[in-house]
Amino acid sequence: MPRVVTLVLVDHAGAPLGALPPYDVPEPWWQEVGSVVTEARRRHGLDVAVLRLLTADRPEPPGGHLTYLGQVAERPAVPLDSVSVDLSPHPMRAPWAEPGGPAGSIAWATHELERLGRPVTAVAQQRTWNLSAIWRLHGGHGSAWLKQVPVFFRHEGAVLRWLADAAPGATPTVLADDGAGRVLLDHVPGEDRYAAGVEERAAIAADHHTVQLRAADDLPALIASGVPDRRGPAVARWIRAALAPHDVSTVDGLLAGLDDRLDEVRRCGLPDTLVHGDLHPGNVRGDGERRVVIDWGDAFVGHPAFDILRLTETLDPATAGPLLAAWAARWRADAPGCDPDRAVALLRSVAPLRLAAVYATFLAGIEPSEHPYHAGDVPACVSQAAAAAEAEQDSLTG
């Protein structure tokens, strides 16, 4: 699916300069801006830092005609088209989406790498959207990745620090962390495992169980470091608050009975632990020898079943069944007397409802021009929750 880009340029002070003529880029995904930068350099000889999305001609990704804001060091020699865009400030704008924001973050990362004896010779912008900004910094000692996240993901650095001590090798190596949303990570060879088959998913689940077993003994430290506490009643309160501005009438019954349902989940006897929150194969990176879990911004303290449900949600029941059975067997062995299968059954309709609340939180924390990234996610997840609740009721009455 094609993506056509119009790049509106501003100078270092944010003064508008005009727009480059539209051009095509290969990736349809709006947050991927590496090719946007590369094409501006190839076509016009410009070094551009993409700041943020301004407009889209469709309600949600992927593809379409996108207008981005980009910063240049000085007015370019190439002719620019006159455009009218709203560049007024917004209180929810990410720091990397402001003029000078990318340069400040790159300067911090470059300084940290030089302090580690790893001078930087090249920087490439990879991604920019409301959930993160990512750059690759390269030098004679290899590559490192600078990731900057918004305030609602700020605890990711604390999670990565905890994992570095408690589960070495489970995540990328943290080279630096400013405590305010910027982390510098060592490169992990391989690729994101979106296409992982059932055997690889089984290995991911087994690795993750080890991490969760260790985390269950260290919850006070995780919570004290800023990881959201969404155990039992807390997750119910958070879901209801996040979804309050949205039309969720199709799951009114599920929301009304959420506290009683979570009480039943608690009686299943599994320990609360560190939950990744978005454990699909695309958030796992590997090269056949090493496998690590990335993107811990959605992490929270809560019930471990949320992760196995996320890892298996796209699989048909016959394929997911053995993965769920192995997950349950591990918990029965490590938490004698627990009932993992019932916990999964009770949380099957809650899991998409929790994801709807996650997306609602994103929408509440970003500026309106970036709402199209997530606007369709809340109703889609609510529909999934309603379908799961209906299937559960049918199984009880059938």
Rank of each mutant, 00 (worst) to 15 (best):
D263Q: 14
D47N: 05
L185G: 00
T319G: 09
T38I: 00
L17N: 06
Y194K: 02
H90K: 08
A202Y: 00
V301I: 15
S249T: 14
D334F: 00
L274C: 01
E370C: 10
A206S: 13
A133H: 11
L254Y: 00
A244V: 00
R342M: 02
A109V: 07
L9Q: 01
A364P: 01
P150L: 06
T110N: 07
P26E: 13
P304K: 07
L80I: 14
R58L: 10
A19N: 09
E191I: 08
A164W: 13
A133R: 01
L51Q: 09
R290A: 09
D339M: 06
A335I: 03
G101K: 04
E112N: 02
L346T: 08
L51F: 09
V211E: 02
R290T: 14
F153W: 13
G100L: 12
L311N: 13
G337H: 06
V344D: 09
A73C: 13
L113C: 02
A77Q: 12
R330K: 02
E191T: 11
A180S: 10
W331H: 02
D295H: 04
S84W: 11
T38H: 10
L113I: 05
W145F: 15
R290F: 11
Y194F: 14
W135M: 08
H138F: 04
R332I: 02
H246Q: 09
I106A: 10
A216F: 07
H280G: 03
L80T: 04
A388Q: 13
A224L: 11
G286I: 14
